[in-house]
Each structure stands twice: as C-alpha cells, then as structure tokens.
C-alpha cells in the first residue's frame, strides 16, 4: 500500500458523518454474501493448486465488502461490468454459485458453458453483462450500456468495476469524458488495491487518488475505505438513488486490499511485509462481524451458521461442477457467430 493511499483513507474518514444505520436484515445479508465469496474463493485457491481449475485465476479475498455492498443494492435490470477479478461481483449480483464454479472448471454446465472461465463471467439474466480480461476494456462497454438505459427511458443504472491500474489507460479518460458529456447513469466503482498487477500505484502515476483523476470533470466522486462495509454501502446508496433519477456519472473509489497475489501462483516478490500485517487487521469480513456483534445484529451462533452455510454451498457447487461434462467441440464451434434471426438473410 502506498503512502498516498493511506492519506486518502485518512481524508475519507476525516469529518465523515456517522452513516445511517443499515437495517439488521440487510447487514446480515451483506455478511452472508461476504462469507459466500470468501469461502468460494478460498476453495478456488485450493482447486487451482490441485490443478482442478486451470488457467489464470484472480482472487478478491480482502475486497469482498465492495462486491457485496455494491451488487447487493442492484436490481437484475441494472448492469454490472466487471474485469478479470470478477468472482465476487458475479456471486453478489446473483449468479448461482454452482454454475459459477462449473464455469471456472470449464464445464458445459457453467454460466458460459465453459467457454469463458474465470476472467469472463457473464450472467445476462441477472445483469452481469460482462467481465473482460483486458485492463479497463470494460469501461467503454459500460458507458454504452448506460447510454442504452438512457435511450430506453429506464431508471436502471450501469455499474462498472475496475482497478486503479485501469485509470492510467487512455480509454478510462475517453469514457469519463463521454459519460460526463452525455450525463450517463453510470457509476464508476474503482477497487483501488494500490497495486496494478505487480507494481504499486506510485510507479504508475503522480496522482494520489483515483478520484482526483476525474477532478477536471466536476461530477460527484468520493473515496471510501473499501474495508468499511457501511461506508461503501452508504455512499453507493446515495449515488445509486441519484443515478436512478437520471443523474450521472459518479465515481466511487474504494480503497481495498488484495490479500493474495495478482493471480494464483504469483510469487509476490514485490510485497511489503509490514503493509501485509496492517491490512490483515482490516479484513472487511472480520470487521463487519465485529461490528455486528457490537451493534447487536449478529450473534456468535449466527456468524458460525453463515460460515457453515457458505462452506456447504461451496461443496454442493463443487459436486454440481464435477458431474458436469466439458463442452463438446461442436458446441464451441456453434457459438462463434449469432444465428440469423428468422427471415433475415445474414449467414
């Protein structure tokens, strides 16, 4: 973590009014989602190590709070565009865990019939519209989706998740200009873990916080502690309400932590051990549970039950995935082009 990031955390905390209390049911639901993501991803790490899941896998352990709070407030007709670190967003947006895991294992019963894998999760019926593997490649897609919502006259909104590394890519700026110019109902959610792949933010830019990068455009933006579930929840809720009324765009920068390497198998020779220790204390799961007990909406028994439920769900999902066969070559070939609609000539 860079000094700049820590300063941004302090700024975000300073003078922050006490957020309105999250209703207990919602608080527990958020915790349930966080547990589901945590247990899912820990299992993924094991499955990857034992070669039952192949290819490039990026985990969000330590950052589940953002996925749970943002996606947890969205409807199925709201669109989410994610990136290569998408498992949490998918589960929180409602993608069934069994099909998500089957997708990671390359099975025909996966969300995308095994053709996409970890970096390309899509569940169109639940508004998880796409996860793209190229840094920031999803940004203009999301702006187009937001324009579509505007043109359709809907109050649905579009959310795009990206990391701080994407902000240095030109298409971030192209998209921000257009979203601001056309006042799109788009919420940019930056999960700033202070690391762009293997190098820290300070090696990529002189601009301290991602929110500052959009400062020339004058739309609402905020930086919050991404490990503070309530802080993310409240700020996002405020932006969401305004976006539904036709305002936009917004940028919410969540300072998070990546507990694991950039990808599974990453040797992480670039890690700062001291920062690691500091951030472990900021685990959003531990903090949210602690807060639940302090505020009285969570008992120890309930907390254990949530963990047991999540673990059991992961094992059921794994059983489903294991019995699902891989896709056939014919299935793969058939999906290269969309078929011609009835009566139309394309072929």
């Amino acid at each position: 973590m860079t000094g700049a990031g820590s300063a941004a955390v302090r700024r975000a905390r300073a003078g922050k009014p006490r957020p309105p209390a999250i209703p207990p049911d919602t608080a527990v639901a958020l915790l349930r989602t966080i547990w589901r993501i945590r247990c899912f991803e820990e299992r993924i790490a094991q499955l990857h190590k034992s070669l039952q899941i192949q290819g490039l896998v990026h985990l969000s352990i330590g950052g589940e709070g953002v996925a749970a709070t943002v996606c947890g407030q969205l409807r199925d007709d709201d669109a989410v565009y994610s990136g290569h670190r998408a498992h949490g967003h998918a589960l929180a947006k409602g993608a069934p865990m069994a099909q998500t895991l089957a997708e990671l294992m390359g099975r025909s019963g996966g969300l995308c019939r095994g053709l996409g894998g970890s970096m390309h999760l899509v569940d169109a019926t639940r508004g998880l519209m796409g996860a793209t593997g190229v840094v920031g490649g999803n940004l203009p897609l999301a702006a187009g989706d937001a324009l579509a919502k505007r043109l359709a006259g809907s109050d649905a909104v579009t959310v795009v998740f990206f990391g701080d590394g994407a902000v240095q890519a030109g298409h971030f700026h192209e998209t921000v200009n257009l979203a601001a110019l056309w006042e799109l109902p788009l919420i940019f959610v930056c999960e700033n873990n202070g690391m762009a792949e293997f190098t820290s933010r300070a090696e990529h830019t002189t601009v301290a916080s991602v929110a500052d990068v959009v400062s020339p455009y004058g739309f609402a933006r905020a930086t919050v502690d991404g490990s503070d579930v309530a802080a993310v929840h409240d700020k996002f809720a405020a932006y969401l309400e305004q976006a539904r009324m036709g305002e936009g765009p917004f940028l919410l920068e969540c300072l998070t932590h990546r507990r694991r390497g950039h990808y599974e198998g990453d040797q992480q020779q670039y890690r700062d051990e001291q920062a690691e220790a500091q951030w472990s204390a900021k685990d959003p799961l531990a903090r949210w549970q602690e807060r639940g007990r302090a505020e009285g909406w969570l008992s120890a028994a309930q907390a254990q039950q949530l963990e047991r439920d999540a673990t059991a769900e992961v094992e059921q999902a794994l059983a489903y995935a294991r019995q699902s066969p891989p896709p056939t070559a014919a299935q793969a070939a058939a999906l290269v082009y969309a078929a011609a609609p009835d009566g139309a000539p394309p072929r």
Partner: peptide, 27 residues
C-alpha cells in the same frame, strides 16, 4: 438521441457501441 456526434475517442466510441449492443440496441 439516436444520431450523435462523438469526440475523437475511437476506443470509447467502439467500446460504447458494444455496450449499447449488449443492452439491446443496434449501433
């Protein structure tokens, strides 16, 4: 709404077209 002039931002222009298409339009 349906006929727009856009900035010289090819990546955003083309990416947005893809997003519009994902969301049901034919740009």
């Amino acid at each position: 709404d349906r006929v727009r002039v856009s900035p010289i931002s090819e990546t955003a222009e083309i990416g947005m077209a893809t997003g519009l298409a994902l969301a049901g339009f034919r740009p």
